[in-house]
Amino acid sequence: MIKVGVIGATGYVGIEIVRLLQNHPQAEVTVAVSQSFVGQKISDVYPSLRNICDIECQDLNMDAIYDKADVFITALPHGISKEVIPYLLEKGKRVIDHSGDFRYKSVEVYEKWYKLKHEMPELLNEAVYGLPELYRDQIKNARLVANPGCYPTCSILGIAPLLANDIIDTKNIIIDAVSGVSGAGRKTDLPYQFCECDENFKAYGVATHRHTSEIEQELSFIAGEEILISFTPHLAPIKRGMLCTTYANLKKDISTSELLDLYKKHYDGEFFVRVLGEGKLPEVKYVAGSNFIDIGLVVDKRLNRVIVLSALDNLMKGAAGQAVQDLNIMYGIPEQTGLSAPGLYL
């Protein structure tokens, strides 16, 4: 049995990891760290876990917790991992991190977009970007996996086959993305209060959202050239779920059905990537609560442009579910273990 420590266990991502691992046949949560709820049972913080997971929340005391788990999944804010991750690695532990601190290969790009000085640049070359559909082989033996952001996962997987096959013009890619409110985490900030979000729909971080740089990095690796995108995130009055709409100009005349065939070939064997048939488009309702990403597309013949839609659950394939998928890969377990449940639908 794999012993898993969750640091930041009472945030939305952390508690989703705890929940998922309750039904994992080969992994168990042996330590849960929460600065806000030290000494309380995690089932008192989230009563849905009563009689399922009743472990006590621990303080972030590295000397006291490091030997309680084989692998640690960290769900901490950006920029505060410097006192956690190097310590765990030195103790021979493996780490799956949810911050943006290890997703970049360039210190300069990270510091520009996050407005923070990177305290551990020596780990950037070692860290593996935790998107299994791109880096499965590297994830297998990694000590440090940087779990991707939710917007990047949804955007990258949506457009990757087009860039990998040199189908689109790389100079004018536009991505409009919509996320549920849980994507902001368990905050009490005014913009995320019920009366601010309900019956509202708004853009934020226009032309400045930090995930822009993460998406650009990975798309550039796929295309073999520098890619710049126009990325606009939006907040929708739903709890969980994400839909990305990507616009790109085609280099040649190609039909919707031909592109769908290309996508199906590209993602052949990928259990969690569902390429929809012609005339069908993704909806958040069909993926919420699951680790699946649904992808559909339409070719606009008038403009010789492809419009790709991709949908996932921002807490699942966009965060906690993908972390468990990475965990499975790291320990040689079938990827769908503990993750094959369908979406909630209702």
Rank of each mutant, 00 (worst) to 15 (best):
L60R: 09
N61A: 07
N61I: 03
M62A: 10
M62T: 07
D63Y: 12
A64D: 10
A64Y: 00
I65M: 07
D70L: 00
F72G: 02
T74R: 08
L76G: 13
I80D: 14
I80T: 13
S81M: 07
V84A: 11
I85G: 12
Y87R: 08
Y87V: 15
L88P: 12
R94A: 06
I96C: 02
H98S: 11
H98C: 08
G100R: 08
D101I: 04
F102C: 06
F102I: 01
K105Y: 05
V109D: 04
W113I: 11
Y114M: 12
E119V: 11
E119L: 15
M120V: 15
P121T: 05
L124W: 03
L124H: 06
G130V: 05
L131Y: 14
Y135T: 01
R136C: 03
I139C: 03
K140M: 15
R143V: 04
L144S: 09
L144C: 04
N147D: 15
N147W: 09
P148R: 13
C150L: 12
C154S: 13
C154E: 08
S155Y: 11
I156T: 09
G158F: 01
G158C: 10
P161K: 07
P161R: 07
L163R: 14
D166N: 15
D166M: 10
K171C: 13
I173R: 06
I174P: 11
D176L: 09
D176S: 03
A177F: 01
V178L: 13
S179K: 06
V181S: 09
S182G: 14
G183T: 06
A184L: 11
G185Y: 09
G185T: 09
K187R: 14
L190W: 02
P191S: 01
Y192E: 02
F194H: 14
F194G: 04
C195D: 08
C197E: 05
D198H: 15
D198L: 10
N200Y: 09
N200T: 06
K202C: 13
A203S: 07
Y204N: 04
G205V: 00
A207K: 13
T208W: 11
T208A: 08
